[in-house]
Computed example of a mutant assay.
Amino acid sequence: MTLCDVKSVTLLKIDSPNLQFLNVRVGRWSFSLNDTPTLVGMKLTGFRGVRGEVDLLRSMLSTSTLQELEISFGQQSKMVKLNDDDWNCTSNLLRVLKITGFSGESENERNFIRFLLSRTPVLERMTLQPSSTLVSWELPQMLEGYRHVKKNFIDPSTSSPFFHLES
């Protein structure tokens, strides 16, 4: 299912027991997933990191069958500071994570990536594509501690890897 540019809706509740893949452009509207026991892949585009989006991700990590997650930051990212409650979730199923469009300069963004890594113990592969080549070098250094994860950094101006970190 793909949802994008839904302009007149402010809240969308998705109740779909057979839904396996969801591609949604987040924005000025919010959505909730109620009955999605077969959802294995989700792509969020236009991610800003506001409280509602973080709460949705936290809920998805702790209650869903999600195995692949792609988050594409929007132009106007306002990543919230994570609080202690945000860290109270774990996904034992998420295996693939891709994050694109982040600046990497914001401490809140780096903490968000750290949060995703620390709450997904069976993660096998992570791909990061920052919005700029000026990404903080703290980010690759931070990721070195997760040796079980295959990491790819994609050059923001192309689709070819900056470098590849092997465990």
Rank of each mutant, 00 (worst) to 15 (best):
D15F: 06
E109M: 00
S103D: 11
L165Y: 05
R114K: 13
N88H: 08
D85G: 03
F115S: 06
T127N: 08
G104W: 09
T36L: 04
P121N: 04
R125F: 14
E107A: 01
L139N: 04
F21A: 13
F102R: 02
L139I: 14
S132H: 10
L139H: 04
R51T: 05
D5V: 08
N152P: 00
N111Q: 06
E166N: 11
V80T: 10
V9L: 15
G101K: 03
I154L: 06
D35N: 14
I14G: 00
K81L: 05
S159N: 14
T133L: 14
L128R: 02
V40G: 08
K7D: 15
T10V: 14
G145R: 09
V96R: 04
E124S: 08
T65S: 15
W87G: 04
N18R: 11
L33C: 06
S30Y: 02
M142W: 01
I71C: 07
L82Y: 01
E124L: 12
Q76R: 14
R28P: 03
M60P: 00
S132E: 11
V6Y: 09
S59Q: 07
P121A: 09
R95M: 14
S157R: 07
V24C: 01
Q75T: 12
N111E: 09
F73C: 01
K81C: 13
D55Q: 11
P156S: 05
E105Y: 01
Q67W: 03
L3A: 08
N23D: 10
G27E: 15
F163P: 14
D55I: 01
L94V: 15
L139A: 10
R114M: 09
R119T: 15
